[in-house]
Design a protein around this nucleic acid. Structure first.
Length: 322
DNA sequence: AAAGTCCACAACCGCGGTTGT
DNA sequence: TACAACCGCGGTTGTGGACTT
């Protein structure tokens, strides 16, 4: 049962209360998850309100849709936001703002909700630390001219390291690749149909059930909706990196090429060394503020600003003043 | 060890757009 | 054409775990 009487809050609430006294809200249980998965596996998705009723779920259609799209869908990719994904998010957000679903189209397996949460918890936090609005020119310039190039440098460095490691341990790499070893966690109910190989995300045509007996609800996996989200933090970014050249593949495989306009902000902007690219009017005293978590370290974006960066910035400031 | 605080994420809500009758 | 139902998006909130004191 979905919203009735659109445009008015009180009728909506009334309808929900009157018609759906036994509707469940809050965290989904394992049984509910399995019920939803089983039903969609058999009947397909869509028509969420009738789906919820037919499946016997005491949930709204909206709730079912959200649970499926953001969590249960086989191709949902969980786990760390990679450096490349961070770069893409920064880049795409600079172009489109809070168009989360649109941004999500360019990050296969990532949901708009996940990207939105990432932005709010990580990026906005840093804007707050810098005492500027996340939508201000100052902060955007900081992202564009400092953090994004720095991200690219990190990607390049990691790629070089990975390349070295590949040549010296090719057998191990091959083994890891064939077994789908990544640092991401995946949908607990499926073998994720997205594989990450050398940083490229490959979509398999069909989901593969992890558990062969959904119909019999014989699930031996110890899983709860609560613990399912743990370990999905993007605070640590381990080995999932790709050569920079492959990052451009992400751009070249976007769903709608019309969206990508290299004449505005291009990837080449990002890979330019930050040297000499500081925006006018940027308050470096705030960037260099010791309490700034970007400098202190912490999560990966934070780690972009370590002692090395502070020295680098200081050098730039000194050279600028000469 | 306990209490308090912070943080990340899942889920909900309201609204605008679309579709069907 | 008008209305109702549904879908999808973006904003917001609640909650549990991690961290700090």
């Amino acid at each position: 049962m979905d919203v009735k009487g659109r445009g008015s809050a009180s009728p909506t609430l009334q309808a929900d209360v009157v018609d759906d006294l036994d509707l469940r809200r809050g965290p989904w249980t394992v049984d509910e998850d399995l019920t939803l998965i089983n039903y969609i596996t058999t009947h397909g998705e869509g028509r969420w309100n009738s789906l919820a009723r037919s499946a016997g779920l005491k949930r709204t259609g909206k709730s079912c849709r959200l649970r499926w799209l953001n969590y249960l869908r086989p191709d949902v990719r969980r786990g760390n936001i990679t450096l490349e994904e961070q770069l893409l998010i920064l880049e795409l957000h600079s172009r489109w703002g809070n168009r989360w679903s649109k941004i999500a189209q360019f990050l296969p397996g990532r949901t708009d909700n996940e990207i939105k949460n990432y932005w709010r918890t990580r990026v906005q936090k840093h804007a707050k630390q810098l005492k500027c609005d996340v939508n201000s020119k100052q902060f955007k310039d900081t992202m564009r001219y400092l953090w994004m190039p720095r991200l690219v440098e990190r990607i390049q460095a990691a790629a070089a390291t990975a390349a070295t490691a590949t040549t010296t341990a090719s057998s191990q790499t091959l083994s890891a690749a064939t077994t789908g070893t990544t640092n991401s966690t995946y949908n607990p109910y499926y073998n994720n149909n997205m594989e990450v190989e050398n940083g490229n995300m490959l979509m398999n045509p069909a989901p593969i059930m992890n558990n062969n007996d959904f119909g019999g609800s014989q699930v031996t996996q110890s899983y709860t909706p609560e613990n399912s989200s743990t370990g999905a933090s993007s605070d640590s970014f381990g080995t999932q990196v790709s050569p920079v050249s492959e990052l451009t593949d992400i751009y070249s495989t976007v769903p709608n090429q019309d969206y990508y306009q290299p004449s505005q902000i291009s990837y080449s902007d990002c890979i330019t060394s930050p040297s000499g690219l500081y925006p006018q009017g940027l308050d470096y005293t705030q960037v260099m503020e010791p309490s700034n978590p970007w400098i202190q370290g912490g999560d990966t974006l934070d780690n972009l600003w370590n002692v090395e960066n502070m020295m680098f910035l200081q050098q730039q400031l000194n050279s600028d003043s000469m």
